[in-house]
Design a protein around this nucleic acid. Sequence first.
DNA 1: GTCTATACGTGGATAGAC
DNA 2: GTCTATCCACGTATAGAC
Lengths: 182, 182
Amino acid sequence: MAARQGDTKAEIRQVAMELFTQQGYEATSLREIAERLGVTKAALYYHFRSKEDIVRSLFGDYLAALDDLVAWASTQAPGPQLRTQVIDRMLHLSAEHGRQAMQFALANQHVVRELHPGRETASELLRTLFGAITDPNATMQEALRIRVALLSVNLTMFAAQGLDATDAQVDAAARDIAHLLS
Amino acid sequence: MAARQGDTKAEIRQVAMELFTQQGYEATSLREIAERLGVTKAALYYHFRSKEDIVRSLFGDYLAALDDLVAWASTQAPGPQLRTQVIDRMLHLSAEHGRQAMQFALANQHVVRELHPGRETASELLRTLFGAITDPNATMQEALRIRVALLSVNLTMFAAQGLDATDAQVDAAARDIAHLLS
DNA sequence: GTCTATACGTGGATAGAC
DNA sequence: GTCTATCCACGTATAGAC
């Protein structure tokens, strides 16, 4: 209890991230988060304005960075080079925001979707990104493989759960796999 | 409304599958399902005993089949052959239960987890499966790639959303990708 | 900065009429 | 087979005291 002055907000974020990832966003109540921390629901409202505010504070940065990536890719000419660059940037994002963020995003797609106010939904975003890196004349097989290559970055982070590996090792493996597919 | 005798149950299942996949299980209320069908909540309770009962009727078969696969794989010796066989069986499962089931499972992992009464959780199940097909002496990189190969089957189904492709084409692409990685 | 108390809506679920 | 009416628990959120 010595460590409960000023960092309460950080603790809330940490517990919320954990529970949201394990059980899902809707399945996790504020009461649950509060109990786990030994505080009351009302205490949470001192630090955050709403439940959505918590999740937003958890992923706002990542989503914004993803937006930027998509916007940038849309201005480039499709082709193998762009593919490589986009994959590298995805890896960079994953490394920067941590595996847990990826796992949350995968487990709470519909929540992430709602967090995009007035913007594209997550699937539209993905579709835009796919379009940007895929040659218009590509066959269906090629297009599909490129999509899987891109998604494999996050999938690898997910698959690494419980595996005895450093972040750097996982990053390297993700890069190998994505490039193998693209 | 002529088509509202006897197939109501089927309609409920269909709408539920759709909404659960799009919005998530908890985020979808029974009221929402009922309204969409033009009936009342109480009507749903005539056909199903609970909300969980609906989702169970949607995925019980798939989960049972997955259980069988894991149990079988555990009795086999790990190696390249087993890997190929497991991947083929996964493809078979996906084909049999449809892409939408895969999408639901991916979007509602924590719900699927709860549906396993007295059994392993979904992640334990996956871990068991991974263990069965991975050589104990494999490097971390190899182990990770095998995991991703297995998961890529479902991922490919997911990635095929909105793509103009037949089920057979997607299956074939999934097989290629999984084998490329394994 | 954290609490008690409470309001309010909604969700799942049941009883009983038609 | 579907409806109305209703119950109860829970979830988010607020007001105001300490």
